[in-house]
């Protein structure tokens, strides 16, 4: 390794002229490089490259007394109930619906949403989460709305009737 050389190597020559040494002034850079790489490693490990994103949601205002709620055709309503263990139950309509169970995989709820979206014009999706549902499920389902570009959806409170439907679904 290059270093500022001291008096080494000239021992063999006796007397003679005093020669100005022609050693190059090279500095041992090893410690500096060590430090540089240490810092580099530190900063690489501590930086978080993927900054979290945000998903903006707008909730409707809480209805006041005497507010008229818009009426919709129940055939256009797809209800999704988020249940325990990452399961989601879905049914169309409100009176005596036939609920089915699926999950959050690609062939699960997404397929249903795409299908229903093409089948039903002006589809309205109601998202109801059971108490056992996780926050992740809620974000996932909102994400699915974005992915399948469903425009009209709402997060609503679950009713005992929904719970009953879920309970009966195998």
């Amino acid at each position: 390794m290059a270093e500022i050389q001291g008096g080494g190597g000239e021992g063999g020559k006796k007397g003679g002229k005093v020669r100005s040494k022609k050693s190059s002034t090279r500095i041992d850079m090893t410690p500096m490089v060590d430090l540089a790489f240490l810092l580099l490693t530190f900063f690489i490990l501590t930086t978080t490259l993927s900054k979290p994103q945000t998903m903006e949601i707008t909730m409707p205002e809480k209805p006041k007394e005497g507010d008229k709620q818009p009426e919709v055709n129940e055939k256009k309503v797809l209800t999704l109930v988020l249940g325990a263990n990452d399961k989601v139950y879905w049914y169309v309509g409100i009176t005596e619906p036939e609920a089915k169970k699926t999950d959050f995989s690609k062939d699960g709820i997404r397929k249903v949403l795409v299908e229903k979206k093409s089948e039903i014009r002006d589809l309205i999706v109601l998202i109801k989460a059971m108490d056992e549902a996780k926050y992740k499920n809620m974000v996932d389902i909102l994400d699915e709305m974005t992915i399948s570009s469903i425009q009209r959806y709402a997060i609503v409170d679950i009713t005992p009737a929904d719970k009953e439907i879920v309970r009966q679904t195998p």
Binding site: P52, Q53, I57, T58, E61, R110, T146, S148
Partner: peptide, 21 residues
Amino acid sequence: VNRFNLITGKEAMPDEMKAVA
């Protein structure tokens, strides 16, 4: 406060759904 944000991580849009979205 009717409009707020949910902080989420990044995830790629599934390829087959890009056209739809």
